[in-house]
């Protein structure tokens, strides 16, 4: 049981860290969004799964409550994170930021 918790929390920390590094390393806003959105969502998913497993494994009313609340927080994160990143990407494009080094840009022909 403990090993499972370590693995889940470890994956969570690893991917959150990769997301943070991606934020510094990539050249423009769209590629940064790739790193930031995907890695932090995946990392937070696994961190939250770790806490849910911990809550249900401890048992008792208090820990079950903890696990259920974490499930709701996880749903909120999974729904809001990609939607927020669409909003940022579209706003960035409409405010005139072009993707750096783009091979093809179909949206430019469109508007």
């Amino acid at each position: 049981m403990n090993i499972l918790l370590y693995v889940l929390l470890g994956i969570g920390v690893l991917f959150n860290g990769l997301g943070a590094i991606a934020l510094l390393r990539f050249p423009d806003i769209y590629t940064r969004l790739h790193g930031a959105t995907k890695c932090t969502t995946f990392g937070s998913l696994f961190t939250a799964l770790g806490v849910i497993v911990y809550g249900f494994a401890r048992g008792g009313a208090q820990y079950n409550t903890l696990a259920i609340h974490v499930i709701i927080a996880l749903i909120a994160l999974l729904v809001t994170n990609p939607t927020g990143s669409h909003a940022i990407a579209r706003a960035a494009y409409r405010s005139g930021i072009k993707p750096v080094g783009a091979v093809v840009d179909k949206l430019e022909d469109q508007s």
Partner: peptide, 13 residues
Amino acid sequence: RVITGKIRPGIVR
């Protein structure tokens, strides 16, 4: 891609 930095970005329809 974060580690190697190999990207070839673009917007497709």
